[in-house]
């Protein structure tokens, strides 16, 4: 996709979004103490956003869109998406496996996926970092972390 089409696409989405926000904010009208109630700011902003989005579309149509948009790097994008999926699985698994185990696993899997070859580095870093972060948050900062099903209260 060239930058012109991206800009036009974004412009159209923003136009629709701003109209939707404007209409949705209408329900807050008349609930403040004076005529500039809770609806005023969002509606004023969405109006300006609409104008700016129209401006973006016009700019793109006139061919003034910036030429040097980075070309989409497909393998890179895919790698990002997969890592994000692994992270999603990690956050979900944390409630089952507990923070410590899930974290170690997450680090190991992502390092493997990103191509860290040496097994001992992967194992060592996973264990060390998981231990360090867990100790720091659990003992020092006293932030409650999900303990998971393997947790046995002492």
């Amino acid at each position: 996709m060239d930058s012109k089409r991206i800009d036009i696409g974004i412009g159209i989405i923003l136009c629709l979004l701003s109209v939707a926000i404007y209409l949705y904010a209408e329900q807050y009208a008349g609930r403040g103490v004076n005529s500039y109630g809770p609806n005023f700011f969002p509606q004023a902003l969405s109006f300006m956003l609409f104008l700016a989005a129209v401006g973006l579309i016009i700019q793109a149509l006139r061919g003034k869109a910036l030429k040097n948009l980075e070309a989409m790097n497909k393998p890179g994008l895919l790698r990002t998406a997969v890592t994000l999926l692994i992270a999603t699985a990690y956050v979900l698994l944390m409630n089952v496996l507990g923070f410590y185990l899930a974290t170690g696993l997450f680090l190991f899997v992502v390092m493997t996926y990103l191509g860290q070859k040496k097994l001992w580095i992967r194992v060592l870093v996973s264990v060390l970092v998981a231990t360090a972060v867990y100790s720091l948050f659990h003992y020092f900062l006293k932030i409650p972390l999900p303990e998971g099903i393997f947790y046995t209260p002492v």
Partner: peptide
């Protein structure tokens, strides 16, 4: 190695 650093930052 950024392959080690990136997962840690992600975490």
């Amino acid at each position: 190695d950024i392959k080690v650093l990136t997962p840690v930052i992600f975490l």
